[in-house]
Computed example of a mutant assay.
Amino acid sequence: MNRWTALIVEDHPIVRQGLRTLLELQGIQVVAETGDGLEALRLLEQHQPHMLVLDLSLQGLSGLEVLRQARRRWRTLRTLVLSMHDDDAYVVEALRSGAMAYVLKGSPTEELVRALEALCQGRRYLSVPLSERLLDPSEGAAAPQDPYETLTERERQVLHLTAEGYTSREIAERLFISPRTVEKHRENLMNKLDLHSQAELIHYAVQRGLVQPRRN
């Protein structure tokens, strides 16, 4: 694994530091790290790493959406998801979105090492507690088209940022577009998803796992 490079995307600095140390001990060069989904895409474009170590709970853009966009842009990128979510829905969605490995936070260090080795060998890997049947979530009857898949890349970004509570002006500044363009994208995406209010948009984003539920 001496020539492998990796980007770490995790929103907790202490966890990022531990991951960096572990990857470097395996001979993997960490080219950059961030806790922001939008920044992750910029860093992938800038550094073109071989490997992505990704948390699903991020600011700016969810880990699942980072996965989807990364799969479309960088077909050879190998992604390891490191997540606290152990329910089938998250695991299946991550694998469908392009993850090659899914490791639960709290797993032994040895398991993360095995997952990294599997990625370098082009194999999939799931944490031991996860069902082996999830290794091929594509099997089974074909499902109807998901309306989310009809959204453009920009519409998805606006959806995520709106659900996180950013104003049109703040979203415009983050995406380098005008507030009016943001509002047009929001209108389009709400029509496609059959959403009719800000509350419905936030509920949809939480149900999809795009953002985390707000805690009082």
Results as ranks from 00 to 15, higher is better:
residue 138 S to L: 05
residue 138 S to T: 11
residue 138 S to H: 12
residue 139 E to R: 08
residue 139 E to D: 10
residue 140 G to T: 02
residue 140 G to W: 04
residue 141 A to G: 06
residue 141 A to E: 12
residue 141 A to Q: 11
residue 141 A to Y: 11
residue 142 A to C: 15
residue 142 A to D: 13
residue 142 A to Q: 15
residue 143 A to S: 15
residue 143 A to F: 08
residue 143 A to L: 14
residue 144 P to E: 14
residue 144 P to K: 05
residue 144 P to H: 03
residue 145 Q to K: 06
residue 145 Q to S: 07
residue 145 Q to M: 03
residue 145 Q to E: 09
residue 145 Q to A: 14
residue 145 Q to C: 10
residue 145 Q to T: 02
residue 146 D to W: 06
residue 146 D to P: 12
residue 146 D to E: 04
residue 147 P to N: 00
residue 147 P to Q: 09
residue 147 P to V: 08
residue 148 Y to I: 13
residue 148 Y to F: 09
residue 149 E to G: 05
residue 149 E to L: 13
residue 150 T to S: 06
residue 150 T to R: 12
residue 150 T to H: 13
residue 151 L to W: 05
residue 151 L to Q: 09
residue 151 L to D: 10
residue 152 T to G: 10
residue 152 T to N: 02
residue 152 T to E: 05
residue 153 E to H: 01
residue 153 E to L: 03
residue 155 E to A: 09
residue 155 E to V: 14
residue 155 E to G: 06
residue 155 E to Y: 06
residue 156 R to A: 15
residue 156 R to Q: 15
residue 156 R to P: 09
residue 157 Q to G: 01
residue 158 V to F: 04
residue 158 V to N: 01
residue 159 L to E: 02
residue 159 L to Y: 06
residue 159 L to S: 06
residue 159 L to Q: 00
residue 160 H to S: 13
residue 160 H to T: 14
residue 161 L to M: 14
residue 161 L to H: 05
residue 161 L to Q: 13
residue 163 A to Y: 00
residue 164 E to R: 09
residue 164 E to H: 05
residue 165 G to T: 13
residue 165 G to Q: 15
residue 166 Y to P: 03
residue 166 Y to N: 11
residue 166 Y to C: 11
residue 167 T to P: 12
residue 167 T to K: 06
residue 167 T to D: 10
residue 168 S to A: 15
residue 169 R to Q: 13
residue 169 R to W: 13
residue 170 E to P: 12
residue 170 E to G: 05
residue 171 I to E: 01
residue 172 A to H: 00
residue 173 E to I: 05
residue 173 E to L: 12
residue 173 E to C: 01
residue 174 R to H: 07
residue 174 R to K: 11
residue 175 L to M: 12
residue 175 L to K: 04
residue 175 L to W: 08
residue 175 L to P: 02
residue 177 I to Y: 05
residue 177 I to K: 04
residue 178 S to V: 04
residue 180 R to S: 12
residue 181 T to K: 06
residue 182 V to S: 07
residue 182 V to R: 06
residue 182 V to G: 09
residue 182 V to K: 10
residue 184 K to N: 14
residue 184 K to E: 15
residue 184 K to T: 14
residue 185 H to P: 05
residue 185 H to S: 12
residue 186 R to M: 03
residue 186 R to A: 07
residue 186 R to D: 00
residue 187 E to Y: 14
residue 188 N to T: 07
residue 188 N to W: 00
residue 188 N to G: 03
residue 188 N to V: 01
residue 189 L to A: 00
residue 189 L to E: 00
residue 189 L to K: 04
residue 190 M to K: 08
residue 190 M to W: 07
residue 191 N to K: 07
residue 192 K to Y: 11
residue 194 D to E: 09
residue 194 D to Q: 04
residue 194 D to R: 07
residue 194 D to P: 01
residue 194 D to W: 04
residue 195 L to D: 00
residue 195 L to S: 01
residue 196 H to I: 11
residue 197 S to C: 11
residue 197 S to P: 08
residue 197 S to D: 08
residue 197 S to T: 15
residue 197 S to M: 09
residue 197 S to V: 06
residue 197 S to W: 13
residue 198 Q to K: 10
residue 198 Q to V: 08
residue 199 A to S: 09
residue 199 A to D: 11
residue 199 A to G: 01
residue 200 E to K: 10
residue 200 E to C: 10
residue 200 E to V: 11
residue 202 I to M: 02
residue 202 I to T: 09
residue 203 H to P: 03
residue 203 H to E: 11
residue 204 Y to T: 08
residue 204 Y to N: 02
residue 204 Y to S: 02
residue 205 A to H: 02
residue 206 V to Q: 12
residue 206 V to D: 01
